[in-house]
């Protein structure tokens, strides 16, 4: 079966906006993603190397804020939902299959390395930016946060500035 077409972006945008609004109304906070990665990293490190976790300020601060249970974080539950939701969407639109998506001419090895590197940069940047495209840029825009909008401009501005150097990966 052929995969169905994507949703009209403006309709998707309005739906996403309404979801964000409902989220803010119910919980007082916006959507996010990178925070769940942070929770998982803290959980992993403090489980594998508890003494290291205690001596490092980053981990111990986080543990204190989360009552020693780093996975008891709103975003962890939200991202579990994201996985379920995206899977359902892929299922109904026939888009479920294991593929390593890459431009013709780009080797699998290159794509694996760039994906890993891009992820690492994004993960690190999201810590400095106190959130990623969802948590800082999108949710920040909804509440007109200065920091959120600055981060958004820096993300997209940076991406445009660097795009030329990595054009061979995509076009």
């Amino acid at each position: 079966m052929e995969q169905t077409k994507y949703m009209n972006p403006y309709i998707a945008g309005v739906l996403l906006g309404l979801l964000l609004l409902v989220t803010i109304f119910i919980t007082g906070r916006g959507l996010g993603a990178s925070g769940a990665v942070k929770s998982s990293v803290v959980a992993a490190v403090t489980t594998i190397a508890p003494s290291h976790g205690e001596s490092s300020k980053f981990y111990s601060d986080y543990m204190r804020e989360h009552e020693n249970n780093p996975l008891k974080n709103w975003l962890v539950f939200e991202v579990i939902g994201v996985i379920i939701g995206a899977f359902i969407s892929g299922l109904v639109s026939n888009r479920l299959n294991f593929t390593l998506e890459r431009k013709e001419g780009v080797t699998s090895k290159t794509r694996i390395i760039t994906a890993l590197l891009g992820g690492a940069l994004f993960g690190l940047g999201a810590q400095l930016g106190r959130g990623c495209t969802s948590g800082s840029a999108l949710s920040g825009m909804a509440v007109l946060s200065f920091g959120g909008i600055i981060t958004m401009l820096a993300i997209f501005g940076g991406a445009y500035a660097f795009a030329y150097f990595f054009r061979k990966l995509w076009i």
Partner: peptide, 26 residues
């Protein structure tokens, strides 16, 4: 942080939220 994320975006092709979505469909 934003600039680093922008760099990560053009190199990796995703952002954290979208990567989770894409990972969920394989």
């Amino acid at each position: 942080g934003g600039l680093i994320m922008g760099l990560g975006f053009v190199i990796g092709g995703f952002c954290p939220g979208t990567s989770v979505c894409a990972a969920a469909i394989g």
